[in-house]
Amino acid sequence: MRRIDAIAISFGVFLAGGIAYLVLRGAGLDNFSAGIWSQVLLVGGLLGWISTYLFRAFTHNMTYHQQRREYEDRVLQKRLDEMTPEELANLQADLQAEK
């Protein structure tokens, strides 16, 4: 993520909090209650985002892990492509022996 993206997201969250506050004020809540409830919404959103991050981290479904998996697959495919037919036959025989 670029620095400008982080700044834009932060500004968006700030605006969302202000808009939530104004909507709650328009719905008839007093200043204090509208402030509390807008903070509850923002903290709830933050906890929801953190939970999705933790889920992706524990299931290894993050960009780093995906790139690493793709890299390893490409390296293995390249090695297979470079093998001679005799080496492929030996590898296949070894795999069959392991089963």
Rank of each mutant, 00 (worst) to 15 (best):
A8F: 00
L88C: 05
F14S: 13
I50R: 02
N90A: 11
E82C: 07
A8H: 06
W37L: 14
E70D: 15
L91F: 05
A93T: 14
I50T: 11
S33F: 09
V23K: 02
Y64L: 14
L47W: 01
A34L: 06
A34Y: 01
Q67K: 13
E82W: 08
F55M: 12
L76T: 10
V23D: 02
T84P: 12
L91C: 04
L47P: 10
G12C: 10
Q39D: 00
G44Q: 05
V43A: 09
G17K: 04
L95P: 01
L95M: 07
E86N: 11
D94N: 11
V40R: 04
E72A: 12
A20W: 02
I7S: 09
G35L: 08
P85M: 00
L76G: 11
G45C: 04
V13S: 04
E86I: 07
G45I: 01
V40E: 08
F58G: 01
R79A: 04
V40G: 09
M1L: 08
K78S: 15
L29V: 11
A27N: 14
A27Y: 12
N90T: 07
H65V: 08
L91Y: 05
R56F: 03
E70I: 00
Y71D: 14
G18D: 04
S51G: 02
Y21S: 05
L15H: 01
F14I: 10
R79K: 07
L47I: 09
E72M: 15
A6M: 12
Q67E: 10
I36W: 15
L41A: 07
R25M: 04
L15Y: 02
G18N: 04
A34Q: 03
Y64P: 05
L41K: 06
Q39H: 12
L24T: 01
G44N: 03
Y64T: 10
H65R: 15
D94R: 07
I7N: 13
A34W: 03
N61F: 07
L15W: 01
I19K: 01
L76Y: 07
F58S: 02
S51F: 00
L88A: 06
N61S: 11
N31V: 08
E70R: 09
S10Y: 09
T52L: 11
E70A: 13
T52V: 06
T52C: 05
R2A: 13
S51A: 08
R68W: 14
A34F: 05
G26Y: 01
S38W: 01
T84K: 08
D30C: 11
G12A: 07
Y53T: 07
L91G: 00
A89K: 03
E82V: 03
Q39N: 14
A89I: 07
Y21W: 10
G17C: 13
E87H: 10
D73W: 08
L95D: 03
A27H: 14
L15K: 03
L47A: 15
A8D: 14
D94G: 10
G17Q: 04
D5I: 08
F14A: 13
V43L: 05
W37I: 01
L91H: 09
A8K: 00
G44A: 07
A57P: 00
N90L: 14
D30N: 12
T84F: 04
K78P: 03
V23W: 02
W37N: 12
M1E: 06
L24G: 00
A93P: 13
L15P: 00
E82P: 03
A57S: 09
D5V: 04
F58H: 10
R69G: 07
D5C: 05
N31H: 14
V40C: 12
M83S: 04
L80K: 08
